[in-house]
Amino acid sequence: MVNPRAPRVFNLYDIIGVFLPGATLLFGILVLFPDPPVPSAIWEYLFYLIVAFSLGHIAQAYSSSAMGELKVFENTMDETRNVLVDDDEDDNDTGEGDEGSGDGEGNNKEESPDDQDDEDTGGEDDDSGLRERFSNSYWGHRILLFILYPLIGPVVWLWWSPNDDEVEELLHANLVWKNLRQTYDLDVGIDRYEDLQQMISSRVDDPRSPVRSYRFQAIRNFHRGMWVSAWFVWLFIVAYEIGAFIPLDGWPYRGLFCFGSVEICSPFIIESYPTVVIFSLLLAVLFVSWRLTVYYERVFIRYLITDYFVAIQNQDTGEVGSGNGG
């Protein structure tokens, strides 16, 4: 039986989430050398292993910030509590004049007098309103999230975080929210989502609980690590190609790839394969990895909520789950 409190070093989580993206980044850096150093002795392999693991940690730390929060958890917890508004908007879309009907469609939404005052301020926010409408539209949202962000995300994450939707299964999320409020005496309007997610994670990280969410977290980490690794290698290649347009044959810019040599030299990968092939391959890895990062973030949050839900159900019924230590 695994002791859940023992430090778990180099487990599947570390291999998938840290080592593989780190090894990819290391490989990407090595092939930028004109003559890539190939390990031959055991200690060299060991050295590369340590470097790959370290680069993986750096890639994880960077990609964790660069991917933003995607706000899946935040949107889900909000949706379980503000669904009254959304539901009513749907009702309004499907029909008007249902006020006071007795056929079960009698839901209606009204704006309070304060809201009417707010509307009178109009005009000056037209530009931001247009941007918001674009980013909230179906295609605008997808263009920003899946086409633009994978390319610029690692640079712009300080100013802009991408935003995905909530998970579709709200009933478990709603009951989890109820349990959290009652267990920790939270205010109903709490918006400290990071705290809420940490409370759930801490509860789920228990030997009696199922921890399927952690597997998906590891897979998400793998993809986001691959995204950032591919992005950096792609950036190096772009930088090298741009160097051709810099005066003095790109020196010292291109000379950086010679690592001290005064002569301009080409990376091994550029000499070996057509640039367009390398470029296309890196872009494919970059876009696919980002797409899967977004997908598995959703899956992770969905299972994190489900794991917590099952954990509290087991607690109520006195059952012991078959989790990571069970």
């Binding site: 009254l84 508004v85 839901n107 939404k109 309070s112 809201d115 109903v188």
Partner: peptide
């Protein structure tokens, strides 16, 4: 910015400070 909504509920549970209403 506050919103109002009229909905049908079932009274689900009382706790210390709140009553939980279940959307019907």
């Amino acid at each position: 910015m506050s919103q109002r909504a009229t909905k049908k509920f079932t009274v689900a549970e009382f706790d210390d400070e709140y009553v939980w209403l279940k959307l019907r």
